[in-house]
Amino acid sequence: MYKVVERRMIVPNLHELVVEAPAVARSVQPGNFVIVRADENGERVPLSVADWDREAGTVTVIFMQVGASTAKLARLKAGGSIPTFAGPLGQETEIGAFGTVLCIGGCYGIGSVYPVARALKEKGNTVFALLEARSNFLLYWQDRFKEVADRVIEITRDGTKGYKGHLTRLSEILTLEGIKPDRIVVNGCTFQMMKVSEATRPMGIKTMVNMNPIMIDGTGMCGVCRLTVAGATKFACVDGPDFDGHEVDWKEFLNRRRTYNPEEVHPLRKSGCASHF
């Protein structure tokens, strides 16, 4: 059993969960994920790590409430416990001395791209953070990003904060901000990662995306997390989850993620974030 240190809603529908998992905390790296089960009959749900404290032995994830399992997680209280919090899984995000890196986060990806930005900064890169949400009240952790990024830029679909509109405006934003990234890292909704990859392809900027297919074991045993990258089948849990966004077969990926939509009645549409899938 893993003890819940904290669980709170940080913005509508997004929850921060801090769990005592010393072994995971000791070895976790940016870009890793954990497999979580909310109770004994629960699904194995993959969630990206958003932060950790190696000394205290805690790991933080940000999750969006979409279906049955995340609804159970959303009901957890500090002092409670969950049966599974296994990890860290997946390859870590490549942290090199790239020069200038733009870290883009949306939805839960704002959380998971934060340790990536932090590590890139420690490595000596110039780091820009671009945070995306539907409206200003759905943005979070700007203060944390300010500590690790050279500049924090925001974009909201309704224009209530920062730029107005979609990430399809990326090229224009880069010009306006005067940023010439050597590399872009995107975490968050599938749709957004795809849109960013489309936008950066003509610019020729290497764009790494943190893929989120359906998973079961997360250890390279079941094969459900497969996707096509550069024409070859890859398994996101062991070969990824980071891949070059220009090489991913997005159409196939979006279809595969929808496999269980009819079975899992999810309140997602109501959240207004249809782009999560």
Partner: peptide, 30 residues
């Protein structure tokens, strides 16, 4: 082979045996 509806036996059997998919929705895995 990556069409929806194509499974590896490991996925299919794991969903059923380990995750008790045959007891869905009492167990969460569909």
């Amino acid at each position: 082979e990556n069409l929806n509806g194509v499974y590896s036996a490991n996925e299919y059997l794991t969903r059923c045996n380990l995750m008790k998919g045959f007891r869905f929705p009492a167990h969460d895995t569909p």
